[in-house]
């Protein structure tokens, strides 16, 4: 595959048949996930707290883990209080919304022809950074 002399030559991809090779591996993956699901459900069944009571808020109200990062960011946004009384709430909502919008339109923002991440260091660094911030906010939200 080394074609140092002709870097512009189109590369022939090494192909794998979808059927049965890929489908079989996918089935095995599903099998494992089914086993994991039943094991998790049996070891840690879904819980149920007391019946909802609109007159009494329990301590430590938290959203599901996948909303924790946004929830925690809204709390952290109080640092923007010096910019005005509405600034924390606005930044806390708007910044994650803008982030999601940027992710949504990613194919139109990143139009370079290169695909693999190791040839796009900026993208790799950004991904790791954003991931780290989101994970940190989630963990912080869980333990605060």
């Amino acid at each position: 595959m080394s074609r140092e002399s002709e870097p512009a030559a189109p590369r022939e991809p090494d192909l794998l048949p979808f059927w049965p090779h890929y489908v079989l591996s996918e089935f095995i993956a599903w099998y494992i996930v089914l086993g994991v699901l039943i094991t998790l459900a049996a070891l840690f069944p879904a819980g149920l707290e007391e019946k909802a009571n609109a007159l009494q808020t329990p301590e430590h109200v938290k959203p599901e883990w996948y909303f924790l990062a946004v929830y925690q960011f809204l709390k952290v946004a109080s640092v923007f209080a010096s910019l005005g009384s509405e600034a924390p709430r606005l930044t806390g909502i708007l910044l994650p919304a803008i982030g999601m919008a940027l992710l949504f339109f990613l194919p139109f923002l990143d139009r370079g022809p290169k695909r693999p991440a190791r040839r796009r260091p900026l993208l790799l660094i950004l991904t790791i950074l954003i991931l780290a911030v989101v994970i940190a906010l989630t963990v912080w939200g869980q333990y605060s």
């Binding site: 007391e50 009571n53 009494q56 599901e64």
Partner: peptide
Amino acid sequence: GFTGYLLPWDQRAFWATTVGTEIAGAV
């Protein structure tokens, strides 16, 4: 995830939805 979380109608469900919809109200 957001809609399903309310359905058991326990304390966690009720208050997570209260807070979640309140956040949407901050837009």
